[in-house]
């Protein structure tokens, strides 16, 4: 089998999350693969728009929801523009799942704190639904999510769903100036809201995804709240081509993000050269 050949998948649904962010749901065309395909939250794949190329995203759906996978992406380059032009019923390609994952098994019995900014909610969403579908295995679930403005919040329907659940604490925030009339959430940057929400670090894990600057300022807050560096998880987004440790593009010092990552603890990140 040629590793670089993608599986064919059909777009079965699409949702425009924000003006420039779209979620595609895809189902594999090969029935056997559609039945057996499995992955873990945090893993990524290479998504093909034929004729334009591949791009790398974490799988945004939960492994507990079988029969399809989803990806959410911002339209920035050639391949994402081409992906965005696909309609329901169109064929795209997928290679994966690749990389490591969030160790949800290890987190069972603990509290979970999810912190995300902007499109960074996509990989986190996979773990959130994974945990919520196995809700009785975890203690408190807290979600802090922020975006630049109300219109930049992704997964709005799901945010409403989480907000309505009694077994989830959700704090939504937008950057100052990004609020709209009637906005009932917080206004302020994610690290500040995390500090305000002050989730308990007692037997808890934090999963943090978002822009580098958000992660940079959130980590000290979590440390202050008592989270140990080996209990804080995040994903690294490096440019990749092959996804399987060959093409040499995603190295950060000795690390191959595609194989050693994309999920890293804050402890591991601190040991890496600051080249990401």
């Amino acid at each position: 089998m040629n590793l670089y050949e993608p599986y064919l998948a059909r777009v079965t649904d699409l949702v425009d999350e924000t003006p420039d962010t779209r979620t595609l749901r895809l189902a594999f065309q090969e029935p056997e693969l559609a039945r057996t395909f499995d992955f873990k939250a945090g893993q990524f794949g290479e998504y093909t728009a034929f004729g334009a190329g591949e791009c790398t995203f974490c799988i945004a759906s939960s492994p507990t929801r079988q029969g399809y996978i989803e990806c959410s992406f911002k339209t920035v380059g050639k391949a994402t523009t081409a992906l965005r032009s696909l309609n329901v019923g169109d064929t795209m390609g997928f290679r994966g799942p690749y990389g490591n994952h969030f160790p949800l098994g290890k987190m069972e019995g603990s509290s979970l704190v999810f912190i995300a900014g902007g499109i960074g909610l996509a990989p986190v969403r996979s773990v959130i639904w994974n945990a919520l579908d196995l809700r009785d295995r975890f203690r408190d679930v807290t979600i802090v999510y922020g975006a630049r403005s109300v219109s930049d919040l992704v997964y709005k329907r799901e945010l409403a769903e989480w907000a309505a659940r009694p077994d989830v604490t959700l704090r939504q925030t937008v950057d100052p100036g990004g609020e709209t009339p009637g906005w009932t959430g917080d206004v302020g940057l994610v690290p500040a809201i995390v500090e305000k929400a002050a989730p308990s670090a007692a037997d808890a894990y934090a999963i943090v995804c978002g822009p580098p600057v958000m992660i940079k300022y959130t980590l000290p807050v979590l440390t202050k709240l008592g989270f140990a560096a080996d209990r804080i998880y995040t994903t690294l987004e490096n440019r990749m081509k092959c996804g399987i440790g060959k093409c040499g593009r995603c190295n950060i010092g000795p690390v191959y993000v595609c194989k050693d990552g994309p999920v890293f603890t804050a402890e591991e990140m601190a040991k890496l050269p600051q080249e990401f």
């Binding site: 670089y4 034929f50 190329g53 591949e54 092959c242 060959k246 093409c247 040499g248």
Partner: peptide, 22 residues
């Protein structure tokens, strides 16, 4: 051994994905 992966459309309905040195 670093390489790039590119799609090259050849007309509207055909194309090739290639691996190129980088």
């Amino acid at each position: 051994h670093c390489f790039d992966i590119v799609d090259e459309p050849e007309g509207v309905t055909h194309g090739t994905r290639r691996r190129n040195w980088d």
